[in-house]
């Protein structure tokens, strides 16, 4: 087992899990709470990555995160504006913004598809210099990303309990009720999508500094991967229970997903296969409740049919 799964692989899986947990939390807001399939995610992740990388390159590793957050807010605002003010279908709005972001992203990176951050100060290099010695040793990266995720989780939990947060939750839960409670759904959807996309972009900026590079294709398939994490988390913790529990479940789901990926890579599953595996996880997990219901119905139908058959045989005898 130790050869199959060394500490360092486990460690990096935890680190990546924490970073990508922010995207899973973003989808927790848009997909689970607001009930909107926000496909801006892929482009927005790359946007955060590109913006974060460029600001880091300019020598501002901390400012990079705030710049990324802001870029995510703008991307989310575009999607929200399209669907609430211009009547574009929510899925289409996300796809449109996602497509447009490709050009923006490559422009942000100075019309190159790859930006390297070697030799730049990052939050991780600074962390290594300040806390990376002594007891903590190699675990400083995990400490940094873990702290960031913990802070975001607590702030998110707090926010979802505020009046505005509750209004956003009600918007996804019962749109009719929201309007008749004097809440403006346009406003709550906009705030929700801005918030979720800012988290996605923040995750992108963290990845840029973590990998010391930004790549135009880094966000491809991110929405599916994050959904897979979200679903794994929901399966673990359940979709009920308090907000804090569900938020923690989502983070655990993301970490577990990365651990599964690490094991798969260790077992020589080619890296290219991972997206297919994620897609299958998501498809199966979302389809499962529906299929289970159908199967139960078929079973009853079959039992009924058999019952009638045996009744018929008895009558004939």
């Amino acid at each position: 087992m130790s050869s199959l799964f060394s500490i360092s692989i486990f460690q990096s899986a935890l680190e990546l899990g924490c970073i990508y947990a922010l995207v899973a939390l973003a989808l927790f807001i848009s997909f689970t709470i607001l009930n909107i399939a926000d496909l801006t995610t892929d482009g927005c992740f790359t946007l955060g990555c590109a913006v974060g990388a460029m600001v880091t390159l300019a020598g501002h590793p901390f400012l990079a995160f705030f710049a990324a957050l802001l870029s995510g807010v703008l991307a989310g605002f575009c999607t929200a504006f399209l669907q609430t003010k211009l009547g574009v279908e929510s899925i289409l709005a996300g796809i449109i913004v996602n497509t447009g972001l490709y050009t923006i992203n490559i422009a942000v990176m100075g019309f190159s598809s790859l930006t390297n951050l070697f030799g730049c100060d990052t939050i991780f290099s600074i962390g290594k210099d300040t806390i990376g010695s002594g007891v903590i040793g190699d675990w400083y990266k995990l400490l940094i990303v873990g702290a960031i995720v913990a802070i975001i989780a607590v702030v998110l939990w707090w926010f979802l309990g505020t009046t505005l947060g509750m209004s956003i939750r009600a918007t996804g839960d019962n749109a009719a009720m929201v309007k008749s409670s004097s809440i403006n759904p346009t406003f709550t959807i906009t705030v929700g999508l801005c918030l979720s996309n800012s988290l996605t972009a923040l995750s992108g900026a963290l990845i840029a500094q973590y990998q010391k590079s930004a790549d135009i294709n880094i966000g491809t398939g991110m929405v599916t991967i994050a959904l897979a994490s979200l679903i794994i988390g929901q399966t673990l913790i359940g979709n009920k229970g308090s907000m804090l529990r569900r938020i923690i479940g989502t983070i655990l789901g993301s970490v577990l997903y990365r651990v599964i990926v690490a094991i798969a890579l260790r077992l020589s599953v080619p890296a290219e296969a991972l997206k297919l595996v994620s897609a299958i996880i998501v498809a199966v997990a979302i389809a499962a409740p529906y299929v289970r219901k159908k199967a139960a119905l078929k079973k009853r139908e079959f039992a009924n049919y058999r019952g009638q058959r045996s009744q018929g045989v008895r009558d004939n005898a």
Binding site: T163, M166, R169, A170, D173, N174, M177, V178, S181, I183
Partner: peptide, 12 residues
Amino acid sequence: APSMTIEENMAL
């Protein structure tokens, strides 16, 4: 709103 608690609904 069905998935929110009684007190949350009242707060809204």
